[in-house]
Every structure is written in C-alpha cells, then in structure tokens.
C-alpha cells in the first residue's frame, strides 16, 4: 500500500538513501520541495547535476576541488611543511572550521578495513609517501578517525614513514573514541591538534 503520489514516492525513495535521512525526514523534505516554485527547484537540480561535472579531486592532496588543485593547495600562504592526513574531504572541512591549522592536507579516501575489502592500495597512501619523498615536509599529522580502522590506518602509515626524516604525530585524545572527526566540536579539535604527539614515541 503506497498512499503517496508517484512523483513524491520516487523522490522519497532517492532521499532515504542519503545519510541521516529516514523515511519520515525524506517525506518532510519531499512535501517541502513540492511547495517550492519551479525556478527554485530547477536551481537545486542544476546544483546537484553540476557536482559530477564540475567537481574534481585535487591531484596533489585528494581533497575536493573546483579545478586541478583544491583551494588549500593553491593558497600560497599555507605551510607546506606540515601535512595533516585525514580520511575524507569532510574531515578537512571540520578542521578548517576550527581555524587551528595552517598547514596542508592529504585525503586518503577512507581507512583500512579488511572486512570491507579495503586495503592500503585502495587508499591514497602512495601519493602521501611520494609527497614526503619529494622533500620539504617536516611533520605528518595522522588525523584519521578515532575508530580501530582509523587507528590501524595511522599505524600502517607511521610504519611506512619510519625511515623518513619527518616527525609523525597523532592528535591527542579528547576526540571521542568511535566517533568521527566530522562531528567533533571545533574547540575540542583545536585542542587535540595542538596537543598532538609522536606516534612511535614509546611512552
């Protein structure tokens, strides 16, 4: 039994696939959109359609970009001697909101997860190693998510960087375990970044 008109039902079926959207929220959004003016809807549709066409992956760091390089990689004021490694572009956005970091990023595109068949080769780890090998990098901050998969990814990268002349650090605790960098408040994130420590330190 489907009491909703077919166009609304079709939209709801799409919306419920989005993160954090249940059937109830999807219906609310669909009914809201049904009341909008056609111009407004066309604008929304154009913005969505433009994503795959105009959005690129930064060739240097893996962040989302409007051109070949992302806004951060093309900003000459950023400190290229410090690279902050994160899992996803939304993690970059979260750290940028905190304003606590003036270096550059490297976006892996996920975390190592054998149970989901994601290995080191499925992430942008080689690209990171190449950036470090090219020189000029003094510190790599491994700011993967505080999950076991994020921790394993950080440990794996730390081992790969062990013989390179760079300091390898991880943000201090304070980020809730099992959480996601994206949802950490900005003050906590600033504190965790400021109090980072060496991954291979023995203490």
């Amino acid at each position: 039994m489907r009491p909703l008109p077919e166009p609304i039902e079709a939209l709801v079926a799409r919306l419920v696939r989005l993160p954090g959207i249940g059937r109830r929220s999807a219906q609310r959004l669909a009914f809201h959109l049904a009341r909008e003016k056609p111009d407004e809807l066309a604008g929304l549709a154009r913005a969505i359609e433009a994503l795959p066409r105009e959005l690129q992956t930064c060739t240097r760091c893996g962040n989302l970009a409007a051109g070949e390089l992302c806004a951060i990689c093309s900003d000459p004021r950023r400190d290229e001697s410090v690279i902050c490694v994160v899992e996803q572009p939304e993690n970059v956005a979260a750290i940028e909101r905190s304003g606590a970091f003036r270096g550059v990023y490297h976006v892996l595109g996920g975390a190592i997860s054998p149970l989901r068949s994601v290995g080191p080769d499925d992430l942008r780890i080689d690209g990171l190693l190449e950036r470090v090998a090219a020189g000029g990098v003094e510190e790599v901050i491994l700011a993967t998510n505080p999950t076991v998969e994020g921790e394993a990814t950080a440990l794996y990268i730390a081992r790969q960087l062990r013989d390179r002349p760079v300091r390898v650090t991880r943000p201090a605790t304070g980020i809730p375990v099992g959480g996601d960098l994206e949802y950490v408040d900005e003050a906590t994130l600033s504190r965790a970044l400021a109090a980072r420590r060496g991954v291979l330190d023995e203490d």
Binding site: I112, P114, G119, P120, E151, A152, T153, L155, Y156, R159
Partner: peptide, 15 residues
C-alpha cells in the same frame, strides 16, 4: 584467511 603479508597484519597486532 586472505594470506595477507606481515606488514598488513602489523597494525592490527598492535591494536
């Protein structure tokens, strides 16, 4: 089960 190399096992051993 997949016969992965030692370097893949190492971080999980540590955790």
């Amino acid at each position: 089960r997949d016969g992965a190399p030692d370097r893949a096992l190492a971080p999980w051993d540590e955790i």
